[in-house]
Structure formats: C-alpha cells, structure tokens
Amino acid sequence: MKAITTLILSAALATGAGAAPPQHWPIKPVKLVVSQPPGGTMDIVSRQVADQLGKVLGQPVVVDNKPGANGIIATQQVARAAADGYTLIMGSGVTHTINPYLYPRVGYDPVKDFTPIANLVSAPNVIAVNARVPATHLQALIDAAKAKPGVLNYASPGVGGTGQLTMELLKASAGIDITHIPYPGIAASVQDTIAGRTEMVALPPAALLAHFQSGALRPLAVTSPRRTRLLPDVPTVAESGFKGFEGVAWFGILGPADLPPDVVRTLRLSLRKVMEMPAMRERLASQGLDITYSEGAAFADYMQMDADRWKEVIRLSGAKVE
C-alpha cells in the first residue's frame, strides 16, 4: 500500500512540475479582429458569425474593431499575433488581395503571414446612375461614355475599394474613358451621385436599395457572377455582354501563419455548422450577401485569383496610395 501511495504522489508531483495535460481548444474567448468601424458590411457579417460561432465553440468570440489605413493596421496586428487560434481576422479583398498592390508597403505578406481558414460570403456591387442619366441598361451607359470620352464621372468611397476598382475593371473591359471622383465614405459618394455632381456609382445593393425604391438612382447591372436576391430583375455585367466579369467584396476568416492543425480543424468544422444554419443563410441573403463558403486550399486559390485580377486592374488604372 505504501509503495502504491508513493507512486501516486510521485505521478502527481511530476504532473505538477511538468506540462499540464493537453486541453481542448478553445479554453478562453477568441478575438475576431475587424478592419472596419462598427456599422459597415464587414462589421455586420462579423458580429453575426461571431455570435453563432461562439455558441458552437463554447467560448465567446469577441469582435474587435481596428479601423485605419484601409485595413492595414488590423491586418498587421493579426499577422504578428501568437499562432494559438485566439486572434483571428475577418479578412477581405481589400486587406489581402488589393492593398498589397495598392500600397508600396503594407507590413505583412498576405500569403506567408496567414493561415486561410474559410471564405464565408461575398457582396456584389451594383452599377447605378442618377435618375437624370437617360441610360436604362449598361450598354447604353457605355455608348454614352464612348460618345463623350472623359466627360462622365463615377463616384466611390475612396481609392482602392472594390467599388472603385470595379469601375476601373469596367473601363478596361469596355474601352471607355470615365473619371473617378473619390469621396470620404459611402454616404457622400451616394449623395453627390443623386445630386448629379457625378453620373454613376458602384456600391453594395443594401447601400443603394432605398434610393432605387425612391427613384433617385437607377440600377443597371450587378458585378457578381449571379444576380442578387435583392435585385432579381437587374442583370449581371456578364449578362450585359462582358463574359466572366466579376467584381465583388469577399469576407473570410484567417489566422496567423502556422496555426495548429487541430485548431484549424475545429474552426472549420464549427464555421461549417454556422454557415449551414438556415436562419444564418436567410439573414445574410436578406442583406444582399452570397454565401461562398470554401476552406483551406480552395480559399487560398480564390484569393490568388482575386489578387491576380486586382493587380492587373490597379496596374492599368494607375491607382496607388502613398
């Protein structure tokens, strides 16, 4: 009996002195860094996903808004975080496939510094004109632009967003000359388009729907591969004569490089459950978002394809931010 007791005590002491028994991840709250301020599309998606993901994981997933420098500040923070799964980022086309070509230095490598976990949703843009522009379809707008090179203007919330680059992609695809007028945010770009100070704008449908309903703006085409549920009668740019045209904002979750495989596996299983929830799918669809779930290599391949697209658009347009 004494020998057995000694063995038990020795084992207990050894456990206390050495590494603790392995714990299942997560054992504490997870932080989801968001590179936009509260209220935007990325923030709304992040909070909806974080709420349900926390329930599946059994630990809170806390949204941490870190806006600034077109997403660079937040993305740098996560690139440098510990690879333990407790700091993640809601990545986007802006942070991972646009900024590296738009800025001379971003302070992170969008591939080497991150573990792609899952792409979740995408948001199309709608190319819209103010009510006084006579064009009722995209080709008519393109014809008007060709008739008056350099005269028509388009608004955007700033240099480097998918709205601006989508219009630059249209310029290259259609061979037209229209002028970019950047604004400090969505509201200002929309109001000046309504007022006629610019002729057109490209933004997510949710941002423009009320103005379509009032008649202040007219939708001509959506930039996703498929029509959006919010505007089922509006054709895609591809349907309007530009096969393969795509200009969408995507949102997906990434972690720092070298995340442990068991953490990645747990996250993917949990995110799959969240994105398969009927209520979640309905909520996202009602906001004009398309569920585009993909994982790992498929997500990485999509990011590379998106990067190649925007790299060429940025080169052709000469867009850059110092």
Rank of each mutant, 00 (worst) to 15 (best):
K2S: 12
I4A: 15
L7C: 14
I8R: 14
A12Q: 12
G16P: 00
A20P: 11
P22G: 12
P22K: 14
Q23C: 13
I27Q: 15
K28L: 15
V34M: 12
D43H: 14
R47G: 14
R47Q: 15
V49M: 09
D51N: 15
V56H: 06
V62A: 10
V63S: 10
N65F: 07
K66N: 13
P67L: 13
I72Q: 14
I73R: 13
Q76H: 13
R80E: 08
A81L: 07
A82G: 06
D84L: 10
Y86H: 11
T87A: 06
L88A: 06
I89C: 10
G93I: 01
H96N: 09
T97K: 02
P100F: 06
P100S: 09
Y101C: 02
Y103I: 06
P104L: 08
G107R: 08
D113Y: 01
D113M: 06
F114I: 03
T115W: 05
P116S: 11
N119H: 09
L120E: 00
V121M: 00
V121I: 03
P124W: 01
P124S: 02
V129W: 01
A131S: 14
V133F: 06
A135M: 02
A135S: 13
A135C: 05
H137N: 14
H137L: 08
L138Q: 09
D143Y: 10
D143Q: 13
D143T: 13
A144Y: 05
K146C: 03
A147L: 13
L152A: 07
N153V: 13
Y154L: 03
P157T: 10
P157D: 08
G161L: 09
L165N: 03
L169C: 00
A172W: 13
S173V: 03
A174K: 05
I176A: 11
I176K: 07
I176V: 15
H180W: 03
Y183P: 05
G185K: 08
I186L: 06
A188F: 06
V190I: 12
R197P: 00
R197Y: 11
E199G: 09
V201E: 00
P204F: 05
A206D: 05
A206N: 10
L208V: 02
L209C: 02
H211C: 00
F212I: 01
Q213K: 15
P219W: 01
S224V: 00
R227A: 06
T228G: 05
R229E: 10
L231P: 04
P232R: 11
P232Q: 08
D233E: 15
V237S: 04
F242R: 01
F242I: 03
G244A: 12
G247W: 00
G247R: 03
W250R: 01
F251Y: 15
P260W: 09
D262K: 07
V263P: 02
V264G: 04
R265P: 01
R272F: 04
P278W: 04
M280K: 02
M280F: 08
D290Y: 03
I291L: 09
I291G: 02
I291R: 03
T292P: 01
A297I: 07
A300L: 10
A300D: 11
D306T: 04
D308V: 05
W310E: 01
K311V: 09
R315N: 12
L316W: 06
K320C: 12
V321F: 05
